[in-house]
Design a protein around this nucleic acid. Sequence first.
DNA 1: ATACCTTATTGAACGTTGTTCAGTAACTCT
DNA 2: AGAGTTACTGAACAACGTTCAATAAGGTAT
Lengths: 199, 199
Amino acid sequence: MSRPQRVPRAELRQAILDAARDILDREGVSGLSARAIAREVGYTAASIYNVFGSMSDILMEVNRETFVELEKLIAGLPANEPPSARLHLLCQAYISFMRRNPALWNALFGGTRHRETFPEWYAEAIRRLFGQLTHLLMAHAPGLEPERAQRLTEQLYVAIHGAVALESDRRLDILTSQSAGEIAASVLDAMLIRLKPKA
Amino acid sequence: MSRPQRVPRAELRQAILDAARDILDREGVSGLSARAIAREVGYTAASIYNVFGSMSDILMEVNRETFVELEKLIAGLPANEPPSARLHLLCQAYISFMRRNPALWNALFGGTRHRETFPEWYAEAIRRLFGQLTHLLMAHAPGLEPERAQRLTEQLYVAIHGAVALESDRRLDILTSQSAGEIAASVLDAMLIRLKPKA
DNA sequence: ATACCTTATTGAACGTTGTTCAGTAACTCT
DNA sequence: AGAGTTACTGAACAACGTTCAATAAGGTAT
């Protein structure tokens, strides 16, 4: 094989991650392999392992970028709405983001290779996302205790996760005629009504 | 390899399924392979393909048996309780069944090999499960319209699925300190309270 | 019994996967 | 120019799902 120009490690590293995302987008998670990435960046599969320790390291790094993109999307949501509306917007944004990038979602939550431990940024990213939800919940129902808001946030997210996971496996339409968005909206509405029955 | 005694197709078929479940139990879904099954039943990998068309056919057949077992478990639940208590029992039974057989759950919902279509019994099994939930919901809130009960059932199940899926990926404890059972109970309670605010 | 036919089983192969490692080429610095 | 560091590859290993021609075994008919 004719060798490509020598290139510093960091440069190849980004090329690998870009290629990985392209392949995920184009062929789905089952089309992603070390050799496929190598072909795409013009290197050999062995070169991948000079930069990343394992295939699952690459996936985790792609996941980190995915989380960053998701946070940017959420940060761009309109802020001059009542809390309940913003909660709905946030949930729908999450769902439609995952719907727009099914392979990225699959990399995030789908292919459960025996993932032993999760990196520290993983829990932090989730905490940030949950923080926004909790904050909005408390803005909507002023008297709400923080721990209860936290628990409600977690329950809401778990429900949304269930809907998106099922949809991504093409199982949701077997179970129900409701869309993931409708389910999320219903669960959220049920919560909001309970928290603020009158106004 | 010394050949085993010749045996009718149907006999080997069941041996394969039993071996598959044993392996799933023992080594998890990543330890399951055609060659592993063959080793277990004392045959060659090629023999597996005289009986089943593909590895994913075997998994689907295991899944069917799993569903049957789950239904038996549910059928054995105490019936002389008020509907709300029976709903809780059903949800907890579902969760603890999946917790007791994590690899079977993983085969059911986890490893999403490009599963093109689902067999007809799949939708039927779900319909039966959902039917019980819907029935109990309507028994609890007599005035409830069937379509609404159906939608609530679906939402409840999706939430439970989310919790179990996350727990099975060891991600639930990253998101929350609540257990899958607690989350399911909370979501169910929220539903029941809304349906019957006074008593 | 002998021949035949059907069914069960295998060995060996193909192409794929993740991963490792010794070897080589290319730059940098003295 | 020579040495040292860094980048890159070829080839291999073990495992995967899957296929298929070849073989062995059992039942049936002559």
